[in-house]
Computed example of a mutant assay.
Amino acid sequence: MGIVDFIGQYGAWSWIVAGLVLFGLELLVPGGFLLWLGIAGIATGLIVMVQPIAWPWQWLIFGVLSLVSIALWVRFNRNRHQNSDRPYLNRRADRFVGHESVLEEPVVDGYGRLSLGDTVWRVSGPNLPAGTRVRVVGSEGAVLKVERI
Rank of each mutant, 00 (worst) to 15 (best):
Trp15Pro: 08
Leu35Val: 12
Ala130Asp: 08
His81Arg: 13
Leu60His: 08
Asp118Leu: 03
Arg86Gly: 00
Gly31Phe: 05
Ala130Trp: 07
Val136Asp: 05
Glu104Asn: 13
Leu37Lys: 03
Trp57Arg: 10
Ile70His: 04
Phe23Ser: 04
Tyr88Trp: 15
Leu20Ile: 15
Leu27Gly: 15
Leu34Asp: 05
Gly63His: 05
Gly11Val: 05
Leu65Val: 07
Val50Thr: 14
Leu46Pro: 06
Glu100Cys: 06
Leu28Pro: 02
Thr132Glu: 12
Val123Ile: 08
Val97Phe: 00
Ser14Lys: 01
Glu104Leu: 14
Pro30Tyr: 07
Gly112Thr: 01
Trp59Pro: 04
Leu103Ala: 09
Asn127Ala: 15
Trp55Cys: 04
Pro52Tyr: 06
Pro30Val: 05
Gly138Phe: 10
Val123Ser: 01
Arg78Cys: 05
Glu140Phe: 06
Pro30His: 01
Arg78Ile: 10
Leu35Gln: 04
Gln51Arg: 13
Arg95Asn: 07
Pro87Tyr: 03
Trp73Ala: 13
Gln58Tyr: 07
Phe33Lys: 03
Val29His: 04
Ile7Trp: 09
Thr132Asn: 04
Gly32Val: 12
Ser124Trp: 01
Asn77Lys: 15
Leu144Cys: 03
Ala93Asn: 02
Ile42Asp: 04
Ala12Lys: 06
Ala43Ser: 12
Asn79Met: 10
Ile3Phe: 15
Val137Phe: 05
Arg75Met: 12
Gly32Ser: 09
Ala18Val: 12
Arg133Cys: 01
Ser66Gln: 06
Arg122Val: 03
Val50Ile: 14
Leu22Met: 15
Val97Leu: 00
Phe23Arg: 06
Val74Glu: 09
Ile39Asn: 01
Ala12His: 15
Arg78Lys: 15
Glu26Tyr: 03
Trp73Tyr: 12
Leu35Phe: 15
Arg122Met: 01
Arg95Pro: 00
Ser115Gln: 12
Thr119Tyr: 03
Gly117Ile: 00
Glu26Ala: 05
Pro56Gln: 01
Pro129Glu: 08
Ser124Ile: 01
His81Thr: 12
Arg86Asn: 15
Gly98His: 02
Asp85His: 09
His81Glu: 12
Gly32Ala: 11
Phe76Pro: 00
Ile39Gln: 00
Leu89Lys: 10
Arg148Ile: 10
Leu103Ser: 11
Gly63Glu: 06
Asp5Lys: 11
Glu105Asn: 12
